[in-house]
């Protein structure tokens, strides 16, 4: 049974998404909605990491329930950097790059959750299916947020 391997991959990918969202938040502090929302949405992924770890033991995986931490000193430096770069047009392109990356990572996580849900149905594990459905619903909202922000931000950055 390879369910454990998929959960391990998903655990890594959710951690990665959470960290990327926190990084975006730090880098784009002057874009206030991105700063606040990326942090809020990172919390969802961090919670998913805990839930995956809690259930993965049954599938032979010892996963760290604690989401990967953020480097607070580095964060502060980035935030300061963001404030300084707040009036630099190049920061706009970096924002698009970061949102694109968030979107791609969220898509990857979405595919992972689909795999988990398929496996859970195959083995009739309703607990796992319940976790997958609940977390995947939030993941899809993260994905739509990144995509929506990308679209909304692109025109002004690219044409001005």
């Amino acid at each position: 049974m390879k369910t454990g391997l998929v959960l391990e991959q998903l655990h890594r990918d959710e951690n990665d998404l959470a960290q990327h969202l926190l990084r975006i938040s730090e880098r784009h502090k002057v874009d206030h909605e991105i700063y606040h929302l990326a942090r809020d949405l990172a919390k969802w992924s961090r919670q998913h990491v805990r839930e995956i770890a809690a259930i993965a033991g049954r599938y032979g995986q010892e996963l760290d329930p604690e989401p990967k931490g953020e480097n607070t000193l580095l964060e502060k430096i980035r935030e300061k950097g963001s404030e300084l770069a707040g009036r630099d047009a190049e920061a706009g392109l970096l924002l698009l790059r970061d949102l694109r990356e968030a979107y791609i990572k969220a898509c990857g996580v979405s595919a992972d959750w689909e795999l988990v849900a398929q496996a859970a149905q195959g083995i009739k594990h309703t607990d796992l299916l319940e976790v997958a459905e609940r977390c995947h619903a939030q993941n899809l909202r993260q994905m739509k947020w990144a995509n929506g922000k990308l679209k909304e931000s692109a025109t002004q950055i690219l044409v001005s």
């Binding site: 002057v30 206030h32 909605e33 707040g86 630099d88 047009a89 679209k151 025109t155 002004q156």
Partner: peptide, 19 residues
């Protein structure tokens, strides 16, 4: 109509970034 209208706080941000 390619995206939602730019709300005021975003307009202030665009004025801040010079666009």
């Amino acid at each position: 109509h390619y995206s939602p209208p730019t709300h005021l706080m975003q307009m202030m941000r665009y004025a801040e970034d010079g666009s």
